[in-house]
Design a protein around this nucleic acid. Structure first.
Lengths: 182, 182
DNA sequence: CCAGGCATGTAATCTGTTACATGATTTA
DNA sequence: TAAATCATGTAACAGATTACATGCCTGG
């Protein structure tokens, strides 16, 4: 049966914030919530099509500026209803697959030195992401404080705090392994 | 093409630690690495079958105690080789889908009070998991310190630190929302 | 005796990724 | 002019979940 896809809800949610194209949505997802939610184009475009067929979203005329082909969508009342129902449900799926942690768990099959290197590299990646999130947060702080903003703020903080914790964990783990004789 | 399934590697990895059954493996995954890796029975059993066909694992006689049907597997040399190759590859997939954070991002569609409630509930869940991980860690500390142990120790710490950070983030977010007038 | 855990497994079905195709426009 | 980015989309294919089936054993 494969559980119900949540893709439609994130698309509706983004369109509830503002009218945009599939490409815009993909950007917004990658940039803003990419650290806890991913969608591929292979999901986005077909889902947009289906949503339009079901009249949960509609195409509008992109009034301006595009010589480029760009399909701008807007959410319908029915779309908002469906979206709202989903937001109100107090249940959440959580799926994670972190292959880095998995390989580290089996770290005994590698030299200590190699594991330390990996942790250092991983930490660099985590720190970069944290920096990006922090700059997004400060940019958000400069803009006007709408109701929407507070939740984006909170959500960004979760990413920042997680990155921070991950980074500290890397240091801790590195020093543990170094004591072992790296 | 759908990316290569990693299921076989975690099964091989568990069998590299000790001989066990599909049921045992499922338990080990849920309990030990469940917070960053999940597998369902619908993946585990068919994969075990395939691995046996490819001679990467073998059935052994469960010497004792079971009136119950239980198929114990052991990893073969070829299986170890395949597993080792995977561990040595310095590349990792990471996929996360946290529907809680997603709904919170769209929190403006709910009352502030409701979002606070959700955060409190979420925090309880996070704290429970943290407690479990901590008890696992102290249990691990009591057992003999093998080479394997240090990596499980480190891996557990990542879960504990993440839970801790998440928990703090919940508090922070709750107080932010309360200031808004919850 | 019955609920729940132990234990294995399959079928149905959808989900989701990758890789590719296409073409315009911008930038170096 | 070549590479990168904008922009939409599809096909192929495997991945993965859920739900169910089966049956034994244990504890209350």
């Amino acid at each position: 049966m494969a559980r119900e896809s949540k893709t439609k809800y994130i698309l509706l949610g983004m369109l509830a914030i503002k009218n945009c194209s599939g490409y815009d949505i993909k950007q917004m997802i990658d940039v803003n919530v990419g650290y806890f939610w991913q969608e591929s184009n292979g999901q986005i475009y077909p889902t947009l099509k289906k949503l339009e067929e079901c009249k949960l979203i509609e195409r509008i005329e992109e009034d301006r500026d595009s010589t480029r082909e760009k399909k701008i969508y807007t959410i319908t009342l029915e779309g908002k209803r469906i979206f709202q129902n989903w937001v109100e449900e107090d249940e959440y799926i959580l799926s994670i697959r972190n292959e880095f942690l998995l390989k580290l768990t089996f770290g005994t099959n590698l030299t200590v030195r190699k594991n330390i290197e990996r942790l250092k590299k991983y930490k660099r990646g985590v720190s970069e992401k944290k920096t990006i999130l922090e700059s997004m947060k400060s940019r958000l702080g400069l803009e006007e404080q709408t109701d929407q903003h507070i939740y984006w703020y909170i959500q960004l903080d979760s990413g920042i705090l997680m990155s921070q914790a991950m980074s500290e964990w890397c240091d801790l783990s590195i020093s543990r392994l170094e004591k072992l004789g790296g």
